[in-house]
Design a protein around this nucleic acid. Sequence first.
DNA 1: TTAGTTCATTGCAATATTACGATAAAGATT
DNA 2: AATCTTTATCGTAATATTGCAATGAACTAA
Lengths: 109, 109
Amino acid sequence: MGLTKTEMFSELQNEIALYAKVFGHPARVAILQHLFKINTCVCGDLVDEIGLAQPTISQHLKELKHLGLIKGNVEGTSVCYCVDSKNWAKMKEVMFQFLDQDLSKEQCC
Amino acid sequence: MGLTKTEMFSELQNEIALYAKVFGHPARVAILQHLFKINTCVCGDLVDEIGLAQPTISQHLKELKHLGLIKGNVEGTSVCYCVDSKNWAKMKEVMFQFLDQDLSKEQCC
DNA sequence: TTAGTTCATTGCAATATTACGATAAAGATT
DNA sequence: AATCTTTATCGTAATATTGCAATGAACTAA
């Protein structure tokens, strides 16, 4: 069916899944890593940096922007992208809490 | 096309994306949360706990198992699942390193 | 043996995602 | 104005994902 039944899950579960989904493609991971590496706005390097076509990159950027993880600033003809540090921190908190659960008790397996 | 061009990306980028992808569905998030909450093996509660059909849960479990994040132990008629703490820790390290990049430098946006 | 329980697998339909050519939009340059 | 540069959007093809009914496999209980 391809249709996720979001209504069956808690808001937190859906939030985690949404964040994770956007990281679930290496192109978006690469985009973010580049933004972190440069650590300032990037205006167009991305298509050269990553090997995908311009419309494809644009689409991936859109998804990252839609979740609020990056911001885009129009600057003349080009657009400057950078990580939205405030929203990134929010996301990090949610994801850390999920990933950092402890496994103290013994396991039977 | 729906076909990710994995060969264009680094091994780390693909690894991060694979982990993230498996967390990119609320059912799998819910399964993992339940396993953490119970903090021991679970033999069949999952279908009741989460509201999806048994084959659907089985499929999600398969994906989690395939990545090594959970283990399944056959115990008579039933199968006991639990988080594989060693592999979970490995995954955590990879994901933390990706998520925990700092944003010290000023941003222009 | 027969029937019941539990989980995996198969097969399929519906939807989502990915990629990109073509094109549009908008500012910059000549 | 005419052209160039840069990014977004549209349309479409290919592939992936999700969900479940039906069925199978394997052990248990009567």
